Amino acid sequence: MTSDFNLDLQIACTGHDLPEQQAMEHWLQATLSGLRERAEVTVRIVERDESRQLNHQYRHKDSATNVLSFPADLPAELDIPLLGDLVICAPVVNEEARQQDKTREAHWAHMLVHGTLHLLGYDHINDTEADIMEQLETDILTKLGFPPPYDA
């Protein structure tokens, strides 16, 4: 586990079945373990409208999406553990869990792991990067007791 970790959780939606903050912290720490000793992450849980607006503004896609990652862009000389921000759209994640026949908890864990790996610089733009990132996600999630996220 990371020795110095802080989660700033912002809930900007209502009426959704959300994981407990303690579970989210556990999933984030499992992702950061061995990759980052100190980290501060903001997770903002939103409705479709905010997700769609941010996805349009930053990715030029006019739809809500499950998770958006905004890595911190700080000068190297600053010794601040800020890793970045994740914006998770609760209705999209819960709907995807139902559509993919996954437990809500497993899919939320996957979205937090996936988004945090993006904050750490991992991506899935090409097949090689996707293979590396997907294997890391699978390793982390199975260690947490969840099924592999990419099994059909």
Rank of each mutant, 00 (worst) to 15 (best):
E20S: 14
E20P: 09
Q21P: 10
Q22H: 06
Q22P: 03
M24C: 14
E25M: 03
H26Q: 08
W27T: 00
L32P: 12
S33A: 10
G34F: 09
L35H: 04
R36S: 04
R38M: 06
E40N: 09
T42K: 09
R44Y: 03
R48H: 07
E50F: 06
S51Y: 06
R52V: 02
Q53E: 00
Q53R: 13
N55A: 04
Q57Y: 00
Y58C: 10
N66M: 13
N66L: 12
N66H: 07
V67H: 04
V67P: 14
V67W: 03
L68D: 05
L68Y: 15
P71M: 09
A72E: 02
L74V: 09
L78G: 10
D79E: 09
I80F: 15
I80V: 15
I80R: 14
L83I: 13
L83P: 13
D85H: 12
L86M: 11
V92I: 12
V92A: 04
R98Q: 15
R98P: 12
D101R: 15
D101Y: 14
K102W: 14
T103M: 15
R104Y: 12
E105I: 15
E105D: 14
A106Y: 12
A106I: 11
H107S: 11
W108D: 06
H110C: 11
M111L: 13
V113M: 13
H114T: 10
H114S: 03
T116P: 14
T116I: 14
H118S: 08
H118T: 02
L120P: 01
Y122E: 02
Y122R: 00
Y122A: 02
H124Q: 06
H124W: 05
N126K: 13
D127R: 09
T128K: 14
T128H: 07
E129S: 05
D131S: 05
E134W: 07
E134F: 07
E134A: 06
L136W: 02
D139V: 03
T142P: 09
K143Y: 07
G145M: 10
F146R: 08
P147T: 08
P147N: 05
